[in-house]
Nucleic acid binder design. Structure first.
Lengths: 196, 196
DNA sequence: GGCGTAGCGGAGGGGTGCCTCGACTTATTC
DNA sequence: GAATAAGTCGAGGCACCCCTCCGCTACGCC
């Protein structure tokens, strides 16, 4: 449903379903008939995007140089998110009552861990970071994109490459605060759903 | 008004004024009589916090080592924001119809530029970043704090110190994307008000 | 053509929030 | 003790939003 994609892209996963219906020139009843829950509509809208991302990610991962693979993975991730607030929301959270989204998120997290580890094993990425730090990065870029979407739509690229300098192994400094555990990370992603 | 402080802290600057009134055991009419606009209430709630921050910032700036001053300025900034979502919102945006907040934001931006420049002139911070990059950082830490507030309340420290490694002169790699201009930065801060 | 059913519209109940305004209560002042 | 001022309450108009349900259309099949 193109209207839903547009609306989620512009207003995030909490977009008004009445607006979506209006935009789609359909009544709310009809919308609810086709997509009983918001999550159904969400998945219908994002499934193509998720697959598209998956394909590009696989390609990025096939790069021989582990650091370059890491970089292009993140570039691809952010490029997909830029201009689509909903997709960033989607990746930032967990929808605990859907097995499908949980699976997608788990895969996503594992993929991140994999590409990170590869870069770490090659000595390119610092050894003291974990998947949670990358998820942090995903969280953090959301408002940057929100703020700059209309004004400086490429600003996230600069932000990302600045962050990449933080992830490089060379001359990294000791971090006092330990990384989040997987459980903490999970809980934090769930918590984002309850924020007003 | 303590209730407003609590509510803004928990739910951000867009918190429901009806809730604030309820929380304060007062009717909405009374609330509106005392604070005709949301911004009035906002300022009443945040003025002490802003001053407190200003004092600590001045102290941080008095540190002799420019890099240490930079670090403790940001640590202080984030510590003030941690646990207070409203303060982060407040610093992230611009409220264009209030001369007072505009002045505060201008001062804030100048202060950031100053402490950054000092670190740059000392050769500690990389020369190719600007105040806009620090504002980016402020934007970016918001959701990290939102997500981790209940789960890993110190996570923002790790995030900050990771970011600091990106700002060090010794680690810098060339950034392809130029920094935002001051005008772009301003517009972006204003734009955050319209996001649903 | 008649009838069943899948699909659609939209009213409407229940909720939240913003903000106003008139009625009411509590000082204060003379 | 009365008149005035200051402060308070909460109903109510308006706008959203979520979600359900019932009446209606239109199409296919006999």
């Amino acid at each position: 449903m193109a209207a839903a994609q547009r609306e989620f892209a512009a207003r995030g996963v909490d977009a008004s379903l009445e607006r979506v219906a209006r935009e789609a020139k359909v009544s709310t009843g009809t919308l609810y008939r086709h997509f009983p829950t918001r999550l159904d509509l969400l998945m219908a809208a994002f499934r193509p995007r998720i697959e598209e991302f998956g394909a590009q990610a696989a390609q990025a991962l096939s790069t021989a140089d582990p650091w370059k693979a890491f970089v292009s993975y993140l570039e691809n991730l952010f490029a997909t998110q830029a201009g689509d607030r909903g997709f960033n929301d989607f990746l930032s959270r967990r929808f605990t009552d859907s097995a499908e989204t949980e699976r997608i998120h788990d895969q996503m997290c594992d993929q991140i861990a994999e590409v990170l580890e590869r870069a770490q094993n090659a000595g390119a990425a610092r050894a003291d970071i974990t998947r949670a730090d990358i998820v942090n990065l995903i969280w953090s870029v959301g408002p940057v994109m929100d703020a700059t979407r209309d004004t400086a739509p490429q600003a996230w690229r600069r932000y990302l490459h600045l962050m990449l300098d933080a992830y490089r192994a060379e001359r990294s400094h000791r971090l006092a605060e330990p990384p989040m555990t997987d459980q903490q990370l999970y809980d934090a992603m769930v918590a984002l759903n309850d924020r007003t």
